[in-house]
Simulated scan of single mutants.
Amino acid sequence: MDETGGEPRVLATDKALALIREIQKDHPDILFHQSGGCCDGSSPMCYPADEFRVGETDVKLGEIGGVPVYISGSQFAVWKHTQLIIDVVPGRGGMFSLDNGRERRFLTRSRLFGGGEACAIPSVP
């Protein structure tokens, strides 16, 4: 699931990569899971890899800075035509996300795949 027509499904800005490296000083092995809403909205949540259980229906979108990024299967079905771009903005992170308390938070931006890219997207199992 990492690429669609040569385009990665998930990217990170330089600011996001810098915050990932900062977090890895305290938590070397981390992962992202794209939140589907509720308490923390639709934020990319950053967790210690050994404290988050990836579900059997979760989809790995790819990696940013060597860190895996997952999304639930049902949410992927809705966002399958979208490239996610993980960015950083001022503010407080999600309550359980490792960016919380750093006065910067991860934010997901998106771009629709177009033309031939959309045709190359496989269906969700």
Rank of each mutant, 00 (worst) to 15 (best):
R53K: 12
T108K: 03
A16W: 05
G36D: 11
D50L: 11
E56Q: 14
P122R: 15
G65H: 04
Q83T: 14
V67P: 09
A118V: 13
A120M: 15
R21D: 13
D58F: 14
F32E: 00
T13Q: 08
W79V: 04
V88K: 03
E3G: 01
Q83Y: 11
G36L: 10
E22V: 05
S72F: 10
V59E: 05
T108C: 07
P90R: 06
V59A: 13
G5T: 07
S43M: 06
V54N: 10
G6C: 15
R105S: 04
I121A: 13
D29S: 14
D40I: 00
L107D: 05
E22Y: 08
N100Y: 14
V67Y: 03
D14I: 01
G73E: 08
D50V: 11
T13N: 09
F76W: 15
P48I: 05
R92H: 11
L98E: 05
D2H: 11
F113R: 01
R105F: 03
Q83R: 15
L84S: 13
G37M: 10
Q24C: 11
T82C: 13
A120N: 12
L112I: 03
S72G: 14
S97D: 04
S43I: 02
T57Q: 13
R105W: 07
Q83E: 15
A120C: 12
V89P: 01
E51P: 00
R105P: 00
T13R: 07
P44R: 12
H27N: 14
P44F: 08
E63Y: 00
F113L: 09
I86G: 01
I121S: 08
L31A: 04
T82M: 12
K25L: 11
G114M: 08
F113K: 00
A18P: 00
G37R: 03
P90M: 02
P8E: 00
D50I: 05
D26W: 11
G5C: 10
E3Q: 09
G73Y: 10
I20N: 00
T82H: 10
L17F: 02
F76P: 10
I85R: 03
R109H: 11
F106Q: 03
W79P: 00
Q83F: 12
R109L: 15
A77G: 15
A18W: 00
R102G: 06
C119Y: 14
I20C: 04
R102H: 07
L61G: 08
T108Q: 08
E63I: 03
D14Q: 11
Q34I: 12
